[in-house]
């Protein structure tokens, strides 16, 4: 099982984002570096949910915003390690919609259940496989570290 390591600050930030946007879904990107067994996430970047027509149960990040996020990641020496979003009053489990719309193979998708406005369970799933035809979600072991992770060799 792959591992997603996040700092306490990142973990708290993505859960707080879900509470702030409740009853709508929040979304954002996770920036970090690849480690031997998964990703080390160093920052979470909030993104706007463009699905204003159905924001309570859909999210979409504008590609133009993704371009800016990735550009910023490169400038920091980081990569897009994955994405996060919330499920208002639904379990922190990937949905068929999440799966159909997932295309960042090798990245982690973090989902937080926000129950009645309060962040509950947060899970992470790695989009495994090699192609659109063979992709699949696999649970990550999500490790929340209290201290700043720091960059290897830093």
């Amino acid at each position: 099982m792959s591992v997603l390591r996040v700092t306490r600050a990142v973990y708290d930030a993505i859960r707080a984002h879900g509470e702030e946007t409740y009853p709508h879904e929040c979304c954002g990107a996770l920036l970090g570096q690849s480690s031997g067994d998964g990703w080390r996430v160093e920052a979470a970047v909030r993104a706007g949910n463009t699905r204003t027509d159905s924001a309570h149960n859909r999210y979409r990040i504008a590609p133009a915003e993704l371009v800016r996020i990735e550009r910023g990641a490169r400038q920091q020496g980081l990569e897009i390690a994955g994405f996060y979003h919330s499920h208002p009053d639904h379990p922190a489990q990937w949905s068929p919609t999440d799966f159909a719309e997932a295309h960042w193979i090798g990245c982690s998708y973090v989902i937080t259940e926000v129950a009645k406005g309060k962040a509950a369970v947060t899970n992470s799933f790695r989009l495994a496989g090699e192609t659109e035809e063979t992709k699949r979600f696999e649970p990550d072991t999500m490790v929340v570290e209290e201290e700043s992770i720091g960059r290897p060799g830093a």
Binding site: E25, S95, T97, D98, E101, S124, T141
Partner: peptide, 17 residues
């Protein structure tokens, strides 16, 4: 990048955090 919550997948829900 997109997704959404309805129609949850039919599989065991196992918190991994």
């Amino acid at each position: 990048i997109a997704g959404g919550s309805p129609g949850l997948a039919v599989q065991a829900i196992a918190p991994s955090a």
